[in-house]
């Protein structure tokens, strides 16, 4: 009896040790292949598992670090305060907890930065903040970013990652789909470029608004992209979905996106697309304006 408890105890100590190691960040476990891998290797491979090639979800700051010229990012509208239009119980507390856990103020980071010297507005959504769901602040930050880009004549790059609308904000959340889409329409009407990059997962109200409105739509390999979530579809049609349904590869095959781009090549691809759409290190080219 004594032995067993001790055995359990020591097992727990070992577990705790491993957990500590993981949180300290020396190692991490790949959720796809279950291998313990060196964090340093993971970072070097742009947050891709060195063992199986699985794409880890990344924070907005890590994402910006991977695509922008170092030190070029200037954040916009960091401190907009989340509202509670339905007076939904415990919602403010949940937001505060999320802010504490992620160090983010909401589920999207927006601002401007440079890629190979070319200035661009850029937004990155975060799956860690309430599944990247779109409420009023997410919609407002994206809208302000797009409007500012329209005024300044900048392209927009948006890394989408979201479970859809923020349920706790009810209809005010739904209205963000219209608000962001119309801002993009104005941006496009002034001849500016919008690139949306779909990352795992992009679903619901985000897919049914700005995610699918890019002049160019890129996606990361194997990202789940769809309007309805897989479970909802299975419940609707009463059958199992085939393997790979709603993957980036599936969307490419069905003509819904332009290109699947690996993390390693993302910065280069974005640079090429900006440059080929008439943007240069010193602003937008004459040929496009004239």
């Amino acid at each position: 009896m004594l032995f067993r408890t001790q055995g359990r105890k020591s097992k727990k100590i070992i577990e705790n040790y491993h957990r500590q190691q993981l949180t300290e960040g020396l190692f991490q476990k790949c959720e796809a292949c279950n291998q313990i891998v060196y964090t340093e290797d993971v970072i070097e491979k742009k947050h891709v598992c060195p063992n199986c090639g699985h794409y880890f979800r990344v924070t907005p700051m890590e994402r910006l670090g991977m695509v922008l010229d170092s030190g070029s990012f200037e954040e916009w509208d960091k401190d907009l305060k989340t509202k509670n239009p339905l007076d939904f119980p415990e919602y403010e507390k949940k937001i505060a907890r999320m802010q504490q856990n992620t160090g983010l103020s909401e589920a999207v980071v927006t601002g401007k930065g440079k890629i190979g010297g070319i200035e661009t507005a850029i937004g990155v959504m975060s799956a860690n903040f309430m599944m990247g769901s779109m409420g009023m602040i997410v919609g407002e930050k994206i809208t302000r970013m797009v409007e500012r880009a329209t005024q300044k004549g900048l392209p927009v790059i948006l890394f989408c990652c979201s479970g859809g609308a923020r349920m706790q904000e009810g209809m005010m959340s739904l209205m963000q789909m219209a608000k962001t889409s119309q801002a993009l329409k104005h941006h496009s009407d002034t001849g500016q470029l919008y690139i949306s990059v779909l990352t795992d997962p992009t679903t619901g109200g985000v897919t049914a608004s700005f995610a699918m409105l890019g002049d160019l739509i890129l996606a990361e390999p194997k990202a789940l992209i769809g309007f309805a979530g897989p479970r909802v579809i299975e419940q609707t049609i009463h059958q199992k979905l085939p393997e790979g349904f709603q993957s980036a590869e599936f969307l490419l095959e069905h003509g819904m996106i332009d290109k699947i781009v690996s993390r390693k090549k993302m910065r280069k691809v974005l640079y090429f697309l900006l440059q080929s759409s008439g943007y240069h290190a010193n602003g937008k080219g004459e040929e496009k304006n004239g």
């Binding site: 700005f210 699918m212 769809g226 309007f227 579809i233 979905l241 349904f245 709603q246 069905h254 819904m256």
Partner: peptide
Amino acid sequence: CGMDAEERGQGEAIAR
């Protein structure tokens, strides 16, 4: 919310 609707781009159609 069916498979064929997804295949033909339900999200894109609404967004558009």
